[in-house]
Amino acid sequence: MRMEQTGKVKKDFIVCKDVMEEFPKADEGMFRVAENLNFTVKENEFLVLFGPGQCGKTSILNMIAGFDLPTSGSITVDGQEVKGPGAERGMVFQTTCLFPWLTVMGNVEYGPKVRGVGKKERRKKAQHYIDLVGLQGFENHFPVKISGGMKQRVGIARAYCNEPVVMLMDEPFGHLDAQTRYLMQEDLMKIWEREKRTVIFVTNNIEEALYLADRILVLTNCPTKVKAEYKIDLPRPRDYTDPDFLKLRKEISEVVDHTL
């Protein structure tokens, strides 16, 4: 489809240019969430935005998703400026936000259904992603009846089932216990390697960032901008106890600590 896709040269797929965002404060004046925010994401790259809590990571994702628009500057995805939400940008949210009135299957097939895909076809597709996140057998369960980890799996399957070109993940594992979190990270890597997408993953957990990322952007506190950039070339699947892993962990932790 695109000429640039030939060969191994990856082009800048998402471009954030001079992005600044402000909100009116409760009392008066403006609260600046981000300024001078510049970064690009390559096609099929797994980019992790890493920064302290409340630093505006979610705001960046919300702007790329199109829920909020930058006060100034621009965000383009595949050459198109973001002007609102769209089906080509899927999101996995921080807390599970499954529709409680629908079953697991109902939630996963929701995207294709909204776009008018026929029942047989969308069921088949939904089943594929339900299997991919390891939830076969739970198709007819309602969200209230399944665990937090399973809910996030459904959230991931639901986002994938709509086949977006960009996957935005807002601390999807932040509310899970440590054990489940490791498991989900492993599974997410497997899914990503099978179904490549451009992923922007937000986290405040350094190990998670290192385990998943092709590249890590370290963000500053509000107003947030890119403080440092790390390309992670460790082979996958990564080992949390690998000396190189630990060295990077220490290095990046120090950078972040200075910003606090």
């Binding site: 939400p85 807390t95 995207g111």
Partner: peptide, 18 residues
């Protein structure tokens, strides 16, 4: 209605009526 639910719908390309 939770804002986040409407966002989910929006990322799926749902129309205002949907």
């Amino acid at each position: 209605t939770k804002q986040v639910h409407l966002w989910v719908g929006a990322t799926f390309g749902a129309s205002n009526w949907q």
